[in-house]
Amino acid sequence: MIVAERKPLEDIREMIAGYKKILIVGCGTCVTICWAGGEKEVAVLSSQLRLASKKDGNELEILEATIERQCEKELVEALKDKVQQVEAVLSMGCGAGVQPIAEIFPDMPVYPALNTTFVGMPEGEGVWVETCRACGDCFLDKTGGICPIVRCAKGLLNGPCGGTNNGKCEIDSEKDCAWTLIYRRLEQQGRLDAMRKYYPPRNFQAVIRPGKVETLPA
């Protein structure tokens, strides 16, 4: 899933300063799961913005809508009636949600209320961790299903650096050293030979950015 965090309220207020009527759009998929931009978060941001504007003596009218996926144009088109009533749209989707709205309503200023952080998974209650860099050249077969490209700070392919600190990463003692995890997993599976191999430099152009995949349904 895509993980995002809401921008600070002050940054959002600065973006929408001057507008009197806006639409806040939530997204019902990834950012709902990571508590950043679902229906509840739309309601919270809405009331925070109203309150703050009132305090400053400004009237701000806010419409709310949450669609299942902002990254699907057909679903975004359903926002048309509401979009026509406002001066600006504040998207609580990830970056891939903001852009379809901006594309479908090219006359409408669209602002991001979130910072999209990574592709990841929940690690515990309210904690999400990055697990995939979307590099386009999956390496997980060689590392026991633990990605060093994203879980090692330096993205090393051939084993740990000298910064392994009691199995943690030298730059953050809260984070596991990916290569310690990989070593243990491969050892457990009797596959340490995979770690003894030399892996040549990565192909950083495995996906030519911006990425595009053309495929047919199976």
């Binding site: 000298g162 392994t164 199995g167 050892e187 770690m195």
Partner: peptide, 19 residues
Amino acid sequence: ATVTPEANPIEPQLIKFEK
């Protein structure tokens, strides 16, 4: 190249050393 003889855990460090 370099090696860290006191690395903890040492085994992954030694695999890289051998490489």
